[in-house]
Design a protein around this nucleic acid. Structure first.
Lengths: 235, 235
DNA sequence: ACCTGAACACCGTTCAAGT
DNA sequence: ACCTGAACACCGTTCAAGT
């Protein structure tokens, strides 16, 4: 982050919308979602706040636009080289890779309504692969929503944000609470705790950014795909 | 929302932390997540901002605390009255109901790291049911993460927030874009569009608050449970 | 311990005015 | 159309001081 805006910047650039979104992505990657402010972008570009406001509209709009960009970074595998269930697995992992490259903004895609046609190529691909698998009509849309909702949702939860301004020591506090659970009232949990400490949902204190859950995602994905396989309509 | 704080309020109440969280939940239910500010709570309680700040700490902390409350509203079914897979389905639907009753704060549970022991009874229940089903050791934690990540994640995406300050007309704009997709480049999507318009992920413009996706959730849940059934380790 | 009262730094957004 | 320059209303958070 340049501490002072380049004074000559405004003399040259016409300040396109693309430039605004570029520096927005840069800021959110480096400093987090809370740091992604209109004024921060303006500072970085050596421009008045209203200038960036003019190009991207409200801040909510800006955040959505930056999040939409991630769909461009998902490289889809060739459907002819895989069976349909294999293909879905590969896409899911590609999706995960893309989100993990921009974790601060990626989870927004799961929380904010994204209304961009930029995602339509992916939608088309998934649908056509599901069609080949034998899904049709209602079962097609159901399978689609199951897959997309699972991938987008599970990864969003994995990348949950840690409170940026939280009280220091809340992690230690929670860890301590977990260790002091009564084995009589929580027999299953306490016996599984060695495997779940900071590694399972609701019993972890680090986000997926620091503690990736790749193995857990693969396992969950396998479960879902196997369920999809069993729900292909019989012809 | 009372427009003016009761002047006698501060004379009586000692202002407990519980009271702060109560009015916080009320505000977020009525006016949305952006309206949940420390100052708004202080106004409602007829108190200085620093008073509520003293009880709940930072705003991030406050939001997390309010979100954690939802776990109390999930009423768990009796495991002895269901098979393990049935039981998981019932829990998932209960979970969905609880989240839909406080949609503005519920999705925070999927986005923010929740570190509260208040969720441990649910964790314990799920684990013990999965144990009965035959999962153990690593497969137990995998099944747990698959189920919890799916439910929490899918529902978070369903309840995605609509931008509160967005430009008017962005919905119509997106709808129009969808209708103008080229059938040659998007054959599967355009032919499935009647079923997907405003009803499927990435092709909707209303949140699950206005357009609930109960049917899609049930279908996805069935897929996941069927996948779990297939992944029970053989003894 | 709990809260008042006031201040500080930082926001998004909106004007009018320039070019 | 695009941006300056300034202002407005609203934040979270932090002080010192009271009780």
């Amino acid at each position: 982050m340049t501490k002072a805006a380049k004074p000559d910047a405004k003399a040259r650039l016409p300040l396109t919308r693309k430039a605004v979104l570029d520096t927005a992505l840069k800021i959110v990657d480096e400093a987090g979602l809370d740091a992604l402010t209109i004024r921060a972008i303006a500072r970085e570009l050596g421009v008045y706040p209203n200038a960036v406001h003019w190009h991207v509209g409200s801040r909510t709009n800006l955040v959505g636009a930056v999040a939409s960009r991630l769909f461009d970074e998902i490289t889809l595998p060739d459907p002819r080289k895989h069976t349909w269930d294999e293909w879905l697995e590969v896409v899911a992992r590609q999706w995960r890779d893309a989100m993990h490259q921009h974790p601060n903004i990626a989870m927004v895609a799961g929380t904010h309504l994204v209304t961009t046609t930029g995602a339509m190529p992916i939608v088309e691909r998934i649908l056509s692969v599901l069609l080949d698998a034998g899904f049709e009509d209602e079962s097609l849309v159901d399978a689609y929503n199951a897959f997309v909702g699972f991938v987008l949702g599970w990864l969003t939860v994995e990348l949950s944000r840690e409170p940026e301004n939280a009280d220091r020591g809340w992690k230690d506090e929670f860890e301590e609470d977990l260790d002091q659970l009564d084995p009589n009232t929580f027999p299953a949990l306490t016996s599984a705790m060695p495997r779940m400490r900071n590694a399972a949902f609701l019993t972890r204190w680090d986000s997926g950014r620091q503690q990736p859950m790749a193995g857990a995602f693969d396992a969950a994905l396998t479960v879902l795909i196997s369920g999809l396989r069993a729900s292909v309509p019989k012809r």
